[in-house]
Design a protein around this nucleic acid. Structure first.
Length: 283
DNA sequence: AGCACA
């Protein structure tokens, strides 16, 4: 009755163990994608809103809002410290209603390539890129980017990575001064409030359906290398599980692939998987 | 958001 139609190719639910987006992703970067591409935003969205959307997500680094220049379309990029955090945020936020008035929902996918901007102390937690006054095609608010800011630090933060943009002459603007709003957050931008990003060879699995069983979990987990055992706890209400692996890397791999996927018994969306706070006790 | 077992 009530469930989200996920149709992203990035994750297969509980399907063949297949190493995806590892090395050799489109574009040929060095490693995994840590950046999310966000579309479906209302055209009056503010960079601060994007930042507030992502700032509480574990492993969040920074984000940027971009006026693409085509129409009034606005997109955003959110960068995380690692791939799995990006995946988790993707699953957590994809499809959420962003504006209750219009009912518009967020569309989030992995970016085609990582944002190249290096986080350095001094640069704000978010950034605005405005490509709107490109041609005479659409001039709605040309007065928005009148601050010919030569940021001088980071001229190469551009983006090849979105689905529907091919423009490059952007103007980067440091975050604290969010234009008209000026409501900068009084918070330390260098410290994202993170949940738990400490790797552990045991995984904590939440958001399971009330009827989930250890057998079902075992079946889903046992295809991953190094899997040892799983324990189901707290059957009353929302059950959680702990899955133990031989190695941290193997746990991480399983988490990455199963993150957000739904078991047959799930009814409240995909699994939420994190590294456990402590390793499963010896037996 | 929710992290036990000894």
């Amino acid at each position: 009755m009530s469930h989200q139609p996920y149709d992203h190719p990035y994750y297969l639910a509980v399907a063949p163990p297949m190493p995806d987006y590892g090395a050799g992703f489109a574009g040929g970067e060095k490693g995994l994608i840590n950046t999310l591409f966000v579309s479906g935003l209302p055209d009056d969205v503010k960079a601060r809103e994007i930042h507030n959307l992502f700032r509480r997500r574990p492993g969040f680094d920074s984000c940027q809002l971009k006026y693409t220049g085509r129409g009034n379309q606005v997109v955003a990029f959110a960068t995380f410290f690692n791939h799995q955090s990006a995946i988790a945020a993707l699953h957590a936020l994809n499809g959420v209603k962003f504006d209750p008035q219009t009912g518009s929902t967020l569309h989030i996918e992995l970016a085609r390539s990582n944002s190249r901007r290096k986080r350095k102390p001094g640069s704000g937690p978010y950034v605005v890129i405005d490509n709107r006054s490109n041609e005479a095609s659409n001039a709605q608010e040309p007065s928005s980017n009148d601050d010919g800011d030569s940021e001088s630090e980071d001229p190469s933060e551009d983006d090849n990575h979105e689905s529907g943009n091919e423009d490059d002459s952007e103007t980067a603007k440091s975050g604290e001064t969010t234009g008209a709003d000026g409501t900068a957050e009084a918070e330390n931008p260098e410290k994202p409030v993170d949940g738990n990003v400490n790797p552990c060879s045991t995984l904590f699995i939440a958001n399971l359906g009330p009827n989930c069983t250890e057998e079902e979990l075992t079946q889903a987990l046992s295809k991953y290398a190094g899997f040892k055992m799983v324990k189901l706890r707290g059957r009353s209400g929302m059950p959680v599980a702990f899955a133990d692996f031989e190695e941290i890397e193997q746990a991480g791999k399983a988490m990455e692939e199963l993150q957000g996927s739904q078991l047959a018994s799930s009814d409240r969306g995909g699994m939420n998987i994190e590294y456990a706070r402590s390793k499963m006790r010896k037996h």
